[in-house]
């Protein structure tokens, strides 16, 4: 009985721990870098009492957008991955499987090729979001016409991603200037992120997270399989499309300022599912907190490991997250993915 009580308390405790970790990572991210900022100075700067000190300016102009960007991108990509894996009932699914990366990539390449450099840098976050969202909506539209089954969704995603991928290659080949903008986006990273880029994405992410949490019971019913879900009165096809629209907007908003950081969306949901189970409300919340913590920690590491040189955060993420994920697989072998 005591074991069961512990099990009941374990989930809120682990969620709290993930939240604490994200907060700690954010504070470290705000304080550390080429110039160290003392916690007291950090608080003063955040309260608007920095008084123009160097540390205060660095925190407000550079580290705050970057840290906020890390938290938001990590939360959005991980939650998006969790939703997509739940809806597709496919542990290999991630935002790229429904066309987020290819759509965003194509629009960024198009933007870089057709606009003057100064303007295209400004507009590429918007282009990335629109591209990701448009591509996913196209996948969903076609899948809905063909019946919204899980396999149709995956195949439609693969086919349309391929077409957009070919489109990107064509643009980059015909207009080599586009390559610069596109490769920055492709590598991904948050070193030059500004508040103007993060702020609009933040609203999309917060609203979509709230929406996904509101529909968490529907997502849970969806995991029971099509027939059982429909026998419980859930309009399965429509719910799949709605959930994937949330996932697309989340991932699209994240890639609009962070570039492609696909790995977060794949591994964080797996880690969180193993720690707190697959109940959607906990899973989405856990992924948002865990993803925010992981990306922020990796970004701090990317800044510090080879200072004064910076590694792109995607590289750190793969080197740190990959082995941890593999360790988790081996440690709990035989358990349900």
């Amino acid at each position: 009985m005591a074991g069961r009580e512990n099990r009941k308390k374990r989930i809120p405790l682990r969620l709290l721990a993930a939240g604490g970790l994200a907060l700690l990572a954010a504070v470290i991210s705000l304080c550390t870098g080429a110039v160290m900022v003392a916690p007291g100075e950090l608080v003063q700067a955040l309260l608007g009492q920095g008084g123009g000190t160097t540390g205060g300016s660095i925190v407000l102009l550079v580290r705050l957008p970057r840290t906020l960007g890390c938290l938001l991108a990590g939360a959005a990509l991980a939650a998006s991955g969790a939703i997509i894996q739940t809806v597709m009932a496919n542990p290999l699914a991630a935002p790229n499987i429904i066309g987020v990366n290819s759509g965003a990539g194509f629009f960024v390449a198009l933007c870089s090729a057709s606009l003057p450099a100064a303007l295209s840098v400004k507009l590429s976050p918007l282009a990335a979001f629109l591209g990701a969202f448009a591509c996913v909506m196209l996948v969903l539209l076609i899948a809905e016409k063909a019946g919204s089954s899980r396999i149709v969704l995956v195949l439609a995603g693969v086919a349309i991603s391929n077409m957009f991928g070919a489109g990107t290659d064509a643009v980059v080949t015909l207009s080599p200037d586009a390559l610069v903008g596109y490769s920055d986006f492709r590598i991904g990273g948050l070193s030059n992120v500004t508040m103007e880029q993060v702020a609009p994405a933040m609203w999309v992410i917060v609203l979509c997270l709230a929406g996904a949490l509101l529909f968490s019971n529907e997502l849970d019913v969806l995991t029971l399989g099509s027939d059982t879900a429909r026998s419980l009165g859930l309009p399965v096809g429509r719910m799949r499309v709605l959930a994937l629209a949330f996932a697309a907007a989340l991932a699209g908003a994240a890639v609009s300022f962070s570039g492609l950081l696909g790995f977060v969306g794949l591994i964080v949901p797996h880690i969180i599912r193993r720690l707190i189970g697959s109940e959607s409300r906990n899973l989405i919340l856990g992924c948002a907190l865990g993803g925010a913590a992981l990306l922020t920690v990796c970004d701090v590491a990317a800044r510090l490991l080879f200072a004064p040189y910076e590694l792109p955060v995607g590289i750190v993420l793969s080197f740190a997250g990959g082995p941890f994920f593999l360790w988790l697989l081996i440690r709990k072998r035989g358990r349900h993915l």
């Binding site: 849970d220 995991t223 029971l224 399989g225 059982t228 026998s231 599912r273 189970g277 697959s278 109940e279």
Partner: peptide, 10 residues
């Protein structure tokens, strides 16, 4: 009661 069921970890 369907013949086959998914088994979520809940």
């Amino acid at each position: 009661m369907a013949q086959n069921h998914a088994i979520p970890s809940i």
